[in-house]
Amino acid sequence: MNEQIALLLGLLLAHVVADFFLQPLSWVHQRNKRHFKSPKLMLHTLVHGVLSGALLWAWECYYGLGDWLPILAATALIMTSHWLIDVAKSYSNRGFVPFIIDQGAHILILVALSCYLTDADTLGLWFNAQLMHSNTYVLLLAYLLVLNPSSVAIRMLLERWHLPASIAGDKRTTLPQAGHSIGLLERLLMLTFILIDELAGVGFVLAAKSVFRFGDLTNAKDKQLTEYVMLGTLLSVVITLGIGLAARALLIS
């Protein structure tokens, strides 16, 4: 089991280093401009090959028989697949979704390669054990509940209070959906702190939010804005605390 996980984590580590630490932004710009004709893309692919090949060689020497043939074949596969995926991405629109698809494709290749080079059944059994464990479902459900379901609940609970337009402010001066996104991140952080039994972190999140909202609240001409923000924040805390404590009670150690 250890050798399978070691290989997969090692390949993922090599990928992260090569993709995010050893690839200057100028290389990315040239790839997006020249696509498959980009010399920097070839150099980037070579960096991936060197790191992955070194990792595969070290793993084969430690766990295997030191055979060079599977190392060379696996390194060639990583380089070729990486080049093809990056070329495809260079023709796509810029944004978060293409980035996730690109990284997901790279990771799938590494997972498949790890299964091929090791005992696929053993690695599959490990993934299945993690997937079928009740704790996995408890955590997934908790994190999903603090996202949109909690936003809907807070919005419905605040429906009875309406802020006049003069108090709510000009929406053109705020980022679109910024408040909603801040609320999601706030609850994700609070839930994480609750699950790892660091309740002081919840106070840190609330204190940080209060600092940034202090100017808006002190400059408000009416206490209604302050009360509205307080209600929304406390509702968010109460809901997240409830979900987090329930999840902790359901987790099996």
Rank of each mutant, 00 (worst) to 15 (best):
A165W: 01
D119Q: 08
R155A: 13
S151K: 01
V138E: 00
S166T: 03
L140I: 15
D121M: 14
L123E: 02
L140A: 15
A129W: 05
E159Y: 09
L123W: 07
D119E: 14
G124W: 05
L157K: 08
L163S: 00
W161F: 08
W161C: 02
V146Q: 00
G124A: 05
E159W: 11
S134D: 09
S151R: 07
L125F: 09
L140P: 02
V152F: 15
L158M: 15
N128V: 09
L163H: 02
L117Q: 06
L123G: 05
I154D: 02
P164E: 01
V152N: 05
L110P: 01
R155Y: 06
Q130F: 09
T136G: 12
I154C: 02
R155H: 09
L145E: 03
R155T: 05
V111S: 06
M132L: 14
S114L: 01
M156A: 13
L141G: 10
L140Q: 01
T118G: 10
S134N: 09
S134L: 13
M156F: 10
L141K: 08
A112G: 15
A120T: 06
V111M: 12
N148Y: 14
S151D: 09
R160M: 05
F127D: 05
S134G: 15
S151W: 00
H162W: 05
L131R: 09
L110C: 05
L125I: 11
W126C: 06
R160T: 06
Y116P: 01
D119V: 00
V146S: 07
P164R: 11
A153C: 09
P164H: 04
N128M: 13
A120R: 12
A112K: 04
A129L: 07
Y137N: 09
L157F: 10
V138R: 09
M132K: 09
E159C: 06
H133Q: 06
M132N: 13
F127H: 08
A112W: 14
A129N: 13
A142E: 07
L123F: 13
L157M: 12
L147F: 10
I154G: 04
L144P: 00
N128W: 14
L158R: 11
L113K: 10
S134A: 15
N135Q: 05
G124P: 02
P149H: 03
I167R: 00
S114N: 02
M156V: 08
A142C: 08
A120H: 00
Y143F: 15
A165S: 13
R155G: 13
L163A: 03
P164D: 03
L163F: 08
L147W: 06
W161D: 00
I167E: 05
V111A: 15
L110K: 01
E159F: 12
D119T: 00
L131H: 08
M132F: 15
N148L: 15
A142K: 04
Y143L: 04
F127G: 11
A165V: 09
I167T: 11
R160H: 08
